[in-house]
């Protein structure tokens, strides 16, 4: 039996994983309450504390390959800002990320009837990375003479009082790669604005040291981070406020059921494999 289990065809495990993913998607099995983590709550509370007209910078530094993890939190953050009438500056350091950044901004702004140039600005992509951040910290209008659509940034009403990164009230970097660190070291630490981050699950453990030093005020880690935020957003809805159909469609929370099932399966497999390993080692 032990020998059979140890030599089990890996494709059987793949099928088990597939079933653990599909069944909860089709049914309500594994529907468990999502309890928001404190690192997510901090970001939510910060945005809640911003007054109307505050400036929020969102750098969406990911491409379609990480869309599954970061797009749900991207949409949730934009919805929160637009609901609170916070002005959004959107940009990306990833050339392949322009399409998603624009799509998310258009989708969320349309839900709340927000206007380009008045309620949000899309700066698009520019090369330079660290140099671009430094440039934005010194003079935003020189770093971005025009927005993505070619409008002069000095003439955009929303940017009238945003001369540099020092005028930003809060910033979040949604990162699939190593962009959070440069935003901290060249951006928030130098130009003194508060910053949070959202990242793929794989990078999340690396970000905790920055929370200990308060260089990041909060963190949305992977799909769970996005699901937490969606939960907070729904809880934070005022009594009598009607949610739009789009707001009810929570991308990340929908994924929590299969995620729970597959995590359980993997935990069982890990425990089983370790027991088998110990048993065979004892025999040897």
């Amino acid at each position: 039996m032990i020998k059979f289990l140890l030599n089990i065809d890996r494709r059987i495990i793949f099928i088990l994983v597939l079933l653990a993913l599909i069944i909860p998607l089709k049914s309500q099995i594994f529907n468990m309450p999502v309890k928001p983590t404190s690192t997510v709550e901090k970001i939510y509370k910060k945005i809640e504390s911003l007054s109307q007209g505050s400036i929020f910078l969102l750098s969406s530094d990911y491409d379609p390959q990480s869309r599954a993890e970061l797009y749900p939190m991207h949409i949730a953050l934009l919805r929160h800002c637009f609901r609170k009438n916070i002005k959004v500056i959107s940009m990306t350091h990833w050339i392949y990320g322009v399409g998603i950044a624009e799509e998310a901004l258009k989708k969320a702004s349309a839900e709340y009837n927000k206007k380009d140039g008045e309620d949000y600005v899309f700066l698009g992509w520019k090369p330079g990375f660290a140099m671009l951040i430094i440039g934005m910290g010194q003079d935003l209008y020189s770093a971005y003479p025009t927005d993505y659509y070619g409008k002069n940034t000095r003439d955009i009403p929303m940017l009238k009082n945003v001369a540099s990164l020092r005028d930003i009230d809060y910033m979040i970097d949604l990162a699939a790669g190593a962009t959070i660190e440069p935003w901290i070291i060249y951006g928030s630490d130098v130009y003194k604005f508060e910053m949070g981050a959202g990242c793929t699950a794989i990078s999340a453990p690396d970000m905790y040291p920055f929370m200990q030093t308060k260089q990041l005020n909060g963190l949305l880690g992977g799909m769970k981070g996005a699901a937490d935020y969606e939960t907070l957003l729904e809880k934070g809805t005022l009594v009598g406020e009607n949610l739009t159909l789009e707001e009810k469609t929570n991308l990340a929370r929908e994924a929590m059921r299969p995620l729970t099932a597959v995590h359980l399966l993997i935990i069982i497999l890990v425990i089983m494999c370790n027991i088998l390993y110990l048993l065979t080692r004892e025999k040897k």
């Binding site: 993913l21 599954a68 993890e69 793929t200 699950a201 794989i202 999340a204 453990p205 880690g221 992977g222 799909m223 769970k224 994924a255 299969p258 995620l259 597959v262 995590h263 993997i266």
Partner: peptide
């Protein structure tokens, strides 16, 4: 965390 990422 990576298991979560890949499964997502």
């Amino acid at each position: 965390y990576t298991v979560m990422g890949r499964m997502s």
